[in-house]
């Protein structure tokens, strides 16, 4: 709530009705993830065989769904209040970790799973997509007039 006389803003009650940048960031990362997925899958296939192919596809799906869930959670709750967004991000972190654990736990004994391929793909995809996106975001923030071309 904004007090007009003192311009004091209560952070937890404020809200952000503007556009949701995290949704566009997430969409960009998902597009790039799908773009590089064949390369990662092929690499895992060379190293770990057919099990590596299925495991890396599963890991890429986990990472992309995780990004989409995180962005959707922030975007939907920031319109209501920033306090709710804060709570949703914190509990969302726990819930998403639990969902990832569940997703891996359910297939751990499947005959097509290769845990090293799954783990390596999760880390490489997550960090790689973030660093790739960071490059575009950093350029956009430093030079707002010179937006780089999006894929």
């Amino acid at each position: 709530m904004t007090n007009a006389r003192t311009r004091q803003v209560e952070p937890m009650l404020a809200r952000d009705d503007g556009p949701a940048p995290e949704v566009s960031i997430s969409k960009d990362m998902i597009k790039r993830g799908l773009f590089v997925a064949p390369l990662l899958v092929a690499l895992c296939g060379v190293i770990w065989g057919l099990d590596g192919v299925w495991s890396s596809m599963y890991a890429i799906a986990i990472v992309l769904v995780n990004f989409a869930l995180a962005a959707g959670l922030v975007a939907s709750t920031a319109r209501i209040s920033l306090g709710l967004m804060m709570g949703a991000v914190l509990f969302g972190y726990l819930i998403r970790l639990a969902l990832i654990f569940l997703a891996v736990f359910l297939v751990r004994d499947a005959d097509w799973i290769s845990l090293p391929a799954l783990g390596a793909t999760i880390i490489v995809t997550h960090l790689g997509l973030l660093l790739w996106e960071l490059k575009f975001v950093a350029i956009s923030l430093a030079h707002p007039g010179l937006k780089p071309a999006r894929p």
Partner: peptide, 12 residues
């Protein structure tokens, strides 16, 4: 929000 989202993802 842009930097916050990237920060959350990096921390995660």
């Amino acid at each position: 929000r842009t930097t916050m989202f990237l920060g959350i993802a990096f921390t995660e």
